[in-house]
Nucleic acid binder design. Sequence first.
DNA 1: CTAAACTCTGTAGCCGACTGTAGAGTCAAG
DNA 2: CTTGACTCTACAGTCGGCTACAGAGTTTAG
Lengths: 154, 154
Amino acid sequence: MTTTTLFKIGDIAKQTGVSVGTLRYYETEKLLHPAERGENGYRYYGTETLEQVQFIKKAQSLGFSLEEIRHILEVRFSGEKPCELVQDLLAEKINQLENQIQQMTIFKTELEEYRELWGKTPDDQEFSREICPLVASVPLKASIESLTPVFQSI
Amino acid sequence: MTTTTLFKIGDIAKQTGVSVGTLRYYETEKLLHPAERGENGYRYYGTETLEQVQFIKKAQSLGFSLEEIRHILEVRFSGEKPCELVQDLLAEKINQLENQIQQMTIFKTELEEYRELWGKTPDDQEFSREICPLVASVPLKASIESLTPVFQSI
DNA sequence: CTAAACTCTGTAGCCGACTGTAGAGTCAAG
DNA sequence: CTTGACTCTACAGTCGGCTACAGAGTTTAG
C-alpha cells in the first residue's frame, strides 16, 4: 500500500491562489505535466505541484512569459542539468530587465520634465494660447519632411 | 474660395508612420475626431491631425494607453485647460513608473542573486540532487498553511 | 481610356493569459 | 439518498492595439 499526499485541483487552487481554470490552462500549455488521473477523470497532484505552481507565479512575477517558463520547465524535466539553459535565460532576462529599467527611467525623467514645465506655467501666460501646452511641448521626433499634401478647395 | 491644406488618409499614414488601418481604428476609438468627408466619402485631414497623431504616438511611447490619451484629448477639445487633468495623469504615470522601476530593480537583483548562486555551484555538489537548483532555491512567498489535502492510496 | 493605386465599410483574426459557460459526471455531508 | 459542492471537457469571450481581408467605389498616371 502506497499512501501518497494527493491534492485535487481545487486544493491546489486554494493553496496557491491560482484559479482552477488557470491550472487547467497551464496544463494545456504544458506548464504542469498531466497530473495523475483517478478513474473518475479527476486530476490528482502531489506536493511538488504546489512548488511548481509557486515557481510559475514567481517566474511570472519576474517578468517571464509562460512560454519562457515552459522552456525552463521542459529542460528541468528532460535533462540532468537544466542549469545551463536556465543560466542563459537568466542572463538574458537580466539584460532585458536592465534595458527596460533604463528605458523606463528615461521615460520617467521625460515625464518629470513635462511636469516641471507645466507646474511652473502660471496658467494664463502667452503660450497657453496653444491648443494644449502639453501637446505643444511634446517634441515630435518623427520627421515631418517630404510631405506631399493634397491642396483642395471645399 | 477657401483653399485649405488637406491630406488624405494615406498621406497622414506616410507622414506619421502610422498605418491607414490604425488611423481608421483611432477614429473608431475617438482619438481622431471625424475628419471632414468629401462627397466621395474620403476622409480629409488638416495639418493639425499630423500633430495629433504625433501626440498620440508620443503619449503612447510614454506608456499612456489609448484610453488615457483619448481622455486627455477629450478634455483638450472640450475645456480651456486640459492641463490639470494632464498633470494628474502625468503624476499618476510617474508614480506608476516609479513603482514599476522599483519592482523591476528588485526582480533584477533577485535574478542576479540566483545567477551568482548557480555560477558558484561546481555542478555536482550535494544539493544538485535537488530536482533543479533553480526551482529549489526560488523562495515560496505565498503561505502554504491551512492545507487540507486528500490522502489516498493508488 | 484603362489600369494601378487609392479609398470606403464591415467584419474577422491575432497575441497572451486568462475567465466564463454549458452540460454532464462525481463526491461528501447530513 | 439527496443535495450541494466539486470536477470534467470543449469551446467562446475578454482586453488592447492593432492587422488583414472582401468587395465595392474613386482617383490618378500614362
